[in-house]
Structure formats: C-alpha cells, structure tokens
Design a protein around this nucleic acid. Structure first.
Length: 556
RNA sequence: UGGGGGAUCGUUCAAUGGUAGGACAUCGGUUUUUGGUGCCGAGUAUUGGGGUUCGACUCCCCAUCCCCCAGCCA
C-alpha cells in the first residue's frame, strides 16, 4: 500500500530548503479555499499536495485556511462542506484558520504602508481606474490622487473603515509603478469598500482586503514556509514578494503548479455554481458533478481520489487528464473492497420447468473473490427467476456466450440451465423463458467436463427486492466543454443522457440491508452504492462506475 | 509580439551530460463460476533547425507553437 512516494519539483525545493536549514527546518503549507462554492476534484489535488507534504515530512504541518475576504460571495454552507470534504478525503482538519481573523492586523499593516508613503487612497471611479491602468502594450496613467499627503491618506483610510463612504467611492492602492510591464504592479488595489455582512465578522468591517494584499499576509501571519498555488498566480508572485518585503515580516516562498483538469467535465467553481443555480443538476453533490461531495454520493472512495492525485503527479505544464484514469482508480479500489451481489436491471422472467414446485434453496455465495475474509452469504434460489433481458438473444451469433434457445449456461452460484421454450406476447416480444436445470450442477459445477462458457446473474422472483437505479454518464458529451461554438454556452455541451433512471430493478434480498457508504459490485453490471435519496421502502442505488466491458466494446 | 510560464508516447508523469522509462488509454494473447479481476505481450514520444561534447531530453543559439495577465474576484 505504501508504495514509494513519487517526488516532484516542489518536494525537491523543500528537500533543498531543508538541507540548507531554511525556515529553521520547518515546513508549513496551507490549503486556502475561498468558501464560495463546494470543493471539486481539482481542489483534491491541492489538498493532497499540501496535506500530503504535512503527512510525509516529520517536521511539516498544513493549515486549512478559509480565504474569506469577499463577503458577497461567501457562505457558511460552503465553509461546512469544505471541512467535511477535507475530512472525508482523509486529512487532518484540526488546524483551521480564517483570513477574516487577521483583518485588524492587515489594517495596521496597511496603515504602516501608508506611513511609508507606499499606499494612497484613490477617489477615481472603477471605470477611471480601469481606463488609467493602460493595456498589455501601453503603460497606465497615474491617478490624480496619487500624491496625497501621508496624513490625508491615513485620515481617509480611517474614514473608509468607519463607513463614511459608499461602495466604490474610494479604494486604497499601493503606490508602485503605473508603467510596469507586470499589470499587477500598476498600483494594485489593496482595499475596497463593501457594505456587506460578512459570515464571520458581521458588520464589523465595510472595507475588505483584496487577494494580493491579503494572501501573503495570511501566509506570513501563520508562519507558512511554502505557499503553493496554481499557475495563474505566477504573475502575482513579484507582488506577493513586494508587499512582504515592504513590511519586513516573515516571508514564505510562493510556488506554482499546474491545476488538475479532467476531460468531459469542468472545474470552474463559477460554472459549477451556474449548473446548480440553473437546475442542470440537482445540487452541488449531484453524482454527476466533479465535486468531492458529488463523487462521494456517487460512490467513489476517498482512496480512489487520493490515488488519482498521486498518479497525475505535480508539474508546471498545464494539461487535461483523461477521466479514464480516475475511473481506473475507482475500479481498482472498488474491485478490492466491494461486496459482490446480484441485481437485475432489466428483468426477464425465467421458469425452471423441472424444479420442484415451491422449493427454495439457500445457496452459498462468496462476498468477494478478491478477499476471502469478506466471507460468504446465502442467496435464495427458486423455480422462478429474473435474468437480464440482454442475457438472452433469439438468433445469437456464435460468440454470444449467454442464453438462447437450446443453449446451456451457468447461473452464478446456482445451476446449469438450458433454454427450451421462448414465450412471446402478441407483439412478438420475448416475455418469458422456459428452462430446465441440471440438479447435478448445484453450485455451478459439473464433473463431467462439460464446458459452459456463459455465466449469468439472476434473482429469485419471490425473494426479489425492487429498487430504482440511477445510471450516470459523463456530464458533458465533449472532451472540453469550455470550447464552444460562436453564440453557444458550455451548457450546450451538456450530455442529455448523463442520468438515466431505471426503475423496477430486481435485487437479491440481502440488499435490503444496504447502508449509505457501503460499496457494492452488482455482478457483471458495475459498482453501485446507496443514494442519499434512498429510503427503506424505496431503495435507490447510484452507479459509481461500470465494469470494463470488452464484449460490449467489441460490439459497438 | 508588453510581461510571465510551458513544450517528452494518444494522455500524464519521469529520466537533472551516459540504454528515453512508468501509469492510463489502445491492440493482441492467457487464466477465470463476473465477457470482471489477474497474468503476459505489442505499438506509439524528446516541437523544428543549428552548435558544444566521445556522448544531449538535459548545456548554448535561432525559430515555432500553447497557456496566463488589462476584476473594487480569488
């Protein structure tokens, strides 16, 4: 299980720092989500990286820090879900911090910067600020308010804090260089006025710090040594460094890596929220969502997600991971841990004509051939059974190993049966099969060397339990949903068949006791789990993943 | 071409001047009371062009392509 950890460029940096005695031999990372949505599998990569470092290095620690600097987008619900998801992934959530706890310290630091003559209050409108920022090719223009006195700036900033101005009326900006080729240096805004209630600080503040100003301070205050973030912040690193240098405080090292992208889905929180708000999905935890809560509900194990993060590695090249890799991770994990059970999704009735009337046998079945410790259970067998409709074919090709007239197959854990008669309704549809069983093949064996290639799953009709089964496919039907034609939105790439609800499924009776969090393999069908909508009188299962199907693939 | 990054099998990660390797995907074989699992095997890559070197994915030069940045979002 504990295979050797694959190194990456970030670990190499840390190893080097450690060998040089940097940071007093400390390693301290952080995972800093903004509580403006649910965590998705892209965040899992960052969580596994940051918390993984803390787990692997004796001296390392990792904080879970909420970057709650924008009250208009953030909610308590998101905070709670994030904690739950990090915990579910298997990481320590003892060290929880909130950026909002540092607002007062940040304010004092801002005053310090003003006193150094390196920040000023700007009265320009948002439009004026945007226009005077210049463009990629042309420098910006300095604000007419750029050279206010230190005293005036301190007074104005205090007035901002005290609510004397409306939203957008004033901002505090760092005084750096309006001609810098790095746009982030063109007098970046440090504070904006937001008369909004913050989920933790309430009405205490009406000015809120911007990311560039706040984030480095948050890291610094917590004594973070390695501040790991995604590629798009590379341009911000010089500013991160600049602020910390002016203040002469503990200065963590920002390191950027490529975020995780998966094909056939999207990773933008904004767009995921849109899917929720526009009811394209049932919620943030819809099993089709790439959120951690979605995967959890769909039946993914936390181990499988962590395994994906290990396998994708950490680098600076941005790319798109094939979702088949994730699917391989769940299958591999679930193959080892899931209980094998029998469930017929699309039932066809079979009558065993030579089976004693009203007889019922309890047959032995192992719970998991991959793990003998999972033991055995018994399954009731009777003369009337459900089998899968697709396991019968009238004019079957040679390579069809399942049932057809005159052919013999094995019923898993039970007997060999041979199909003698096909009963059809007036429309010519097959509605029932009459078969005979061989009593000498109990358990599914015969000692006469007979070769029976096909093995079918089945459920005894009088003992069957009804259930609804939800079959999922990719949320989008194109690899990159963000690539849209003119005038189209990413929602136009939604897969209309991403959810298929199958009702009237027939399950073996042991499934009556299935519980939330159990992992099942419905034999020959796939991996399934109980859905949160399930109730004792109406069982509902989600398909976590299909089994690999070389036969189905070949016949496409 | 303002600045910042990045280019290695189809995808992704490695190889840090010394046989380009793994995983997934694909295709084949084998085993099997799941057409699952397992096992075995195959094909496919250093963006291009120069240079340095006994030897270059790696160092140098010149091209090319891709991504990010002009929120009072993070």
């Amino acid at each position: 299980m504990a295979e050797e950890m694959q190194s990456n460029f970030i670990r190499e940096i840390i190893d080097l720092d450690l060998s040089q005695g940097k940071n007093d031999g400390r390693v301290h990372t952080r995972f800093p989500p903004e509580p403006n949505g649910y965590l998705h599998i892209g965040h899992a990569k960052s969580i596994c990286l940051n918390f993984g470092l803390a787990n692997d290095y004796e001296v390392a620690k990792c904080n879970l820090r909420f970057d709650d600097t924008n009250p208009v987008k953030e909610e308590d619900e998101y905070v709670n879900s994030i904690i739950e998801d990090v915990k579910w992934l298997g990481f320590n959530t003892d060290n929880i911090f909130y950026a909002s706890d540092y607002f007062e310290k940040m304010y004092i630091f801002a005053v310090q910067l003003i006193q150094q003559g390196k920040a000023y209050v700007d009265d320009q409108t948002p439009e004026e600020i945007r226009e005077s920022r210049g463009s990629l090719k042309s420098p910006g223009i300095e604000s007419p308010f750029r050279n206010r006195t230190i005293e005036e700036n301190i007074q104005l900033f205090e007035d901002m804090r005290n609510g004397k101005f409306q939203n957008g009326e004033k901002v505090l900006r760092a005084k750096i260089d309006m001609a810098s080729p790095n746009l982030n240096f063109r007098d970046p805004i440090m504070y904006r006025i937001l008369h909004a209630s913050h989920q933790r600080t309430g009405e205490t503040w009406c000015i809120y710090p911007m990311y560039d100003w706040a984030h480095g301070l948050e890291d610094s205050i917590e004594g973070i040594t390695h501040s790991i973030c995604t590629l798009e912040f590379q341009d911000h690193r010089p500013l991160y460094d600049w602020f910390l240098d002016q203040l002469d405080v503990h200065h963590p090292q920002q390191i950027e890596f490529a975020r995780l992208n998966l094909n056939y889905t999207i990773m933008s929180k904004r767009k995921l929220k849109q899917l929720v708000d526009e009811d394209h999905v049932s919620g943030w935890n819809d099993p089709r969502m790439p959120t951690l809560s979605g995967f959890r509900r769909k039946g993914y194990s936390p181990d499988s997600i962590r395994e994906l993060c290990d396998r994708v590695g950490v680098a600076k090249r941005d790319g798109i991971i094939d979702i088949a890799l994730l699917e391989n991770c769940v299958r591999e994990d679930l193959n080892k841990r899931s209980q094998r059970v029998m469930a017929v999704l699309d039932p066809l009735k079979v009558v065993i004509t030579n089976y004693p009337k009203n007889q019922v046998e309890e047959l032995d079945a192992d719970n998991n051939p991959e793990n003998e410790d999972d033991g055995k259970r018994t399954i009731p067998f009777s003369g009337e059974l459900w089998i899968e409709k697709s396991d019968f074919m009238e004019d079957a090709p040679k390579k069809f190993f399942r049932l057809s007239e005159g052919k013999e197959v094995r019923l898993k854990h039970a007997y060999y049966i041979t199909c003698n008669d096909v009963i059809k309704n007036d429309d010519g549809e097959v509605v029932e099969l009459h078969c005979t069983y061989d009593p000498k093949t109990k358990g599914g064996w015969s000692d006469d060397g007979r070769r029976v290639k096909g093995t079918l799953h089945w459920v005894s009709i009088p003992h069957a339990v009804d259930a609804e089964i939800r079959q999922y496919e990719h949320l989008f039907n194109v690899e990159n949903p963000n690539k849209t034609k003119d005038g189209e939105s990413f929602t136009d790439n939604l897969n209309p068949d991403s959810l298929q609800i199958v009702s009237g499924c027939k399950l073996e009776p042991s499934l009556k006791n299935a519980e939330l969090g159990n992992y099942f393999q419905f034999l020959r069908n796939g991996y399934y789990c109980i859905d949160t909508d399930s109730a004792t009188d109406t069982l509902i299962f989600n398909r976590t993943a299909t089994l690999r199907d070389t036969w189905g693939k070949k016949n496409k």
